[in-house]
Design a protein around this nucleic acid. Structure first.
Lengths: 230, 230
DNA sequence: TGCGTGGATATTGGATCCAATCTAACGATC
DNA sequence: GATCGTTAGATTGGATCCAATATCCACGCA
């Protein structure tokens, strides 16, 4: 894990998205969350308040508030008088996240499935195809997330979906490492195809079973990877 | 909803628990979360930073950081330049929370059930009995939460349990109103007894079904109450 | 040479200060 | 009498300042 953070990676986001936010705190929080989830700020990175403030062009205060929000989301950890770091995920945590996803995602899918449209299916298929062509691990995570969320989107339960996305993203933060360690994962793509097919057929039970298996599979891969690394 | 907040209710907590925390921010966040979940700070209460700071005996800064953390947990809402208020729950939200609980709690129970001990069952039974005797709606919520969490506690999944507790608490914030509006709810207690019996019998399927029904039932009650109030 | 102590430095946690903006009251005008 | 504009007050958002604590390196001593 790098000692200093990828500020160039941030500055792009910054200039682009700053005007959309009304308060600096909001803006910093959103940008940092994106950066953490996308892997721009890898797990373990120390987060120097002064440094971040300079990068964002604000004072330390909005940074501190943003860090506190991210702490509440379990994305960063505070060590009193020693600063904040991007939260590491342990093998234990990954099992936890797997269990949460295995509970939430089938529920979201079951609510969403009856309302999915042909356009949704087409989009999902396209995202699978894009994943086939994608080689950048950072982009893979985003495509994977969008594929899953496309299938759940019609659930009409914003809080549930936010929770699903949050845990999907938490798992995906490590996808890039799996990607690097294991190479391309055709098995995962097979599961995506199977899942989409079940959805198209309108078979809720089969679809839920497919997504459950897929999630548990991903959790096992992640846990195995984390054990290896340790 | 009251215009000013119940500071006396807070000051008790404050003197008692302050020494346990290393930083003021941690302390303020924990105390305010407790106060919100217990209903001491009812939904809709405006949260004046200056006022809270004085009540906690700190400056506005730890209060601001604590409020940001609570915002990330969806317990308070910020309106730029207009301050924070304790988050209201809508009928829509309550359906959302019901769906989340219905997904998470059976999963937690299924993991926990095989490891529950006779002591756990005894504690759960005692909590049900205490609920029978309890007349204070504020305490009811806490007993209800502890009853549920006792059954899930052996799941060995800290993040999952934290998520369950968070949503259980979110639903319980309104229990006091249901309590007042509907009087005592024997039906809920019947469900508690049925749930505990299924757990004691080690019947995971029956227990999960019981908890699912109980959760959905609570969600319906809450949604109905919220609609009535509007 | 290795270990423990002590001070310099860096960085955070918390307090205070200033500017931006929202609210509300008051008065003028139709 | 009602409505709109203006202005004073209150409150937040953000910047700066100070104190507390942890880290790190040098130095002394066994």
């Amino acid at each position: 894990m790098p000692d200093s953070l990828d500020l160039p990676g941030l500055t792009a986001l910054i200039a682009r998205s700053r005007p959309h936010y009304r308060t600096a705190t909001e803006f910093v929080e959103a940008a940092m969350r994106e950066a953490i989830l996308a892997g721009t700020l890898p797990a373990g990175s120390p987060l120097r308040q002064e440094e971040l403030a300079a990068a964002f062009g604000v004072s330390r205060m909005p940074v501190r508030e943003a860090l506190r929000q991210l702490e509440a989301r379990a994305l960063v950890e505070f060590h009193p008088h020693r600063g904040a770091v991007v939260a590491e995920i342990s093998a234990e945590d990954s099992a936890d996240i797997g269990a949460i996803r295995a509970a939430l995602e089938p529920a979201a899918l079951r609510l969403s499935l009856p309302r999915l449209t042909p356009e949704d299916f087409a989009l999902a298929a396209e995202l699978i195809a894009e994943m086939d062509a994608e080689s950048d691990p950072g982009r893979m995570g985003e495509l994977n997330r969008r594929f899953h969320m496309t299938l759940y989107a019609r659930a009409g339960r914003p809080r549930l979906l936010a929770l699903v996305e949050q845990h999907l993203a938490a798992a995906d933060r490590y996808l890039r490492f799996q990607f690097a360690a294991l190479g391309y994962h055709p098995r995962s793509q097979d599961e995506h195809h199977a899942l989409l097919a079940a959805c198209r057929a309108g078979d809720a039970d089969a679809a839920c079973e497919a997504v459950t298996r897929h999630v548990l599979q991903a959790g096992d891969l992640l846990a195995a990877f984390l054990r290896d690394r340790a």
